[in-house]
């Protein structure tokens, strides 16, 4: 068996400096007091120890994106497309939960007969490097959602936390090219070390059978009870690595011309389901809260065969009222079905 290649943690910046020669490298960073993935530059405050507060989906699905420019003078209209593509980029140090989140986004934006170019072009240009997780955070529960924190086999390359070094193996052609570059630069050496076991999770929940259970719970009073404390803010959705809803709006320069934009939206907002004519099929908090959890735990698995919650715990960490998806799964599991 081939031995694991590794580079010392002290050489991290050297590795990143090498990588930015060929691509934009998104690394977990501290930006204005918040940890998030951001393009690496010399001097970046890198945060490899814990997962980021903001999910890395913004590298593939930015919160605001231009779609096209338009102008209209009387009956003369004109469109100018906006190129959504980006240059080669690397997402460096993704945790398994966020890798799983990208697989969910892939399902939505790339399958079922339509490829979203805004997402697809960025995804195509991206190399994903995952990092094994040995110390889950206080709000993490990925193992409960069927995600292996130690490694994820869908990435282009996997890094392992070896204490004072990072081990790395390639999993795809893109990953092999990257490891080859690191070898050529003399940054990798053989190691006998391996990643230690992942520490025990504080949060655990049994998600077995939750999809089937929720199929019988659309009219259950649980949604009324759960939604009472919800503020219907968008914190959970905007931090979520899998939430993918967007709205299309326009920014007008004047009454004739402007730009169409797509920007994050969420089923938590009252106007999200509002229809032309004023009808709102999700008029209260109950319907909105139900939609959020039904989508993640029932509709998405029904459509794509996987849960749309990866256990990253960001919504739990930041929910202003501690409406925790782990509690929802537990309470739904214990509830008497209404079917």
């Amino acid at each position: 068996m081939q031995r694991l290649k590794a580079f010392p943690k002290a050489k991290l910046t050297a590795v990143l400096e090498m990588m930015i020669q060929k691509a934009t490298v998104w690394v977990p960073s501290m930006i204005a007091g918040v940890s998030r993935f951001a393009p690496y530059r010399p001097g970046t405050d890198i945060q490899m120890g814990t997962n980021t507060a903001i999910s890395p989906k913004e590298a593939l699905f930015p919160s605001t994106e231009k779609i096209y420019k338009f102008s209209a003078y009387g009956i003369d209209g004109d469109f100018e497309p906006v190129d959504p593509s980006v240059g080669p980029q690397i997402l460096f140090g993704l945790r398994s939960c966020d890798m799983q989140g990208i697989l969910c986004l892939d399902d939505v934006f790339l399958t079922r007969g339509y490829v979203d170019d805004f997402y697809g072009s960025k995804r195509e240009a991206t190399t994903l490097i995952t990092l094994g997780c040995v110390t889950p955070g206080a709000d993490c529960f990925c193992a409960s959602m069927g995600v292996n924190p130690a490694e994820h086999d869908a990435s282009d390359a996997q890094m392992y936390d070896l204490g004072d070094a990072y081990g790395i193996i390639a999993r795809s052609v893109k990953g092999e090219a990257l490891v080859k570059d690191l070898m050529a630069a003399g940054l990798l050496s053989d190691t006998d070390k391996s990643q230690g076991p992942t520490a025990d999770f504080v949060l655990k929940v049994d998600s077995e059978g939750i999809t089937e259970k929720l199929q019988q719970m659309f009219d259950h009073p649980l949604w009324d009870e759960l939604s009472r404390k919800c503020l219907n803010c968008g914190t959970c959705a905007y931090l979520c690595p899998t939430c993918h809803c967007f709205d299309i709006a326009e920014k007008k320069r004047n009454q004739h011309c402007g730009v169409k934009i797509k920007c994050w939206d969420t089923c938590m907002f009252s106007e999200y389901a509002l229809m032309a004519g004023g009808h709102n099929p999700r008029p209260s908090k109950k319907e909105r809260v139900r939609q959020r959890f039904m989508h993640k735990l029932r509709y998405f698995p029904e459509r794509y065969g996987k849960l749309q919650c990866t256990g990253c715990g960001r919504c739990i960490a930041k929910c202003p009222v501690n409406l925790e998806i782990t509690d929802v799964i537990k309470l739904a599991g214990e509830a008497k079905s209404d079917g």
Binding site: L231, C233, T235
Partner: peptide, 16 residues
């Protein structure tokens, strides 16, 4: 500017 760059427009501040 650095602070406003971070805002997600989640409206948690407004809603509470």
């Amino acid at each position: 500017q650095a602070q406003h760059e971070k805002c997600l427009r989640c409206y948690a501040c407004r809603n509470i």
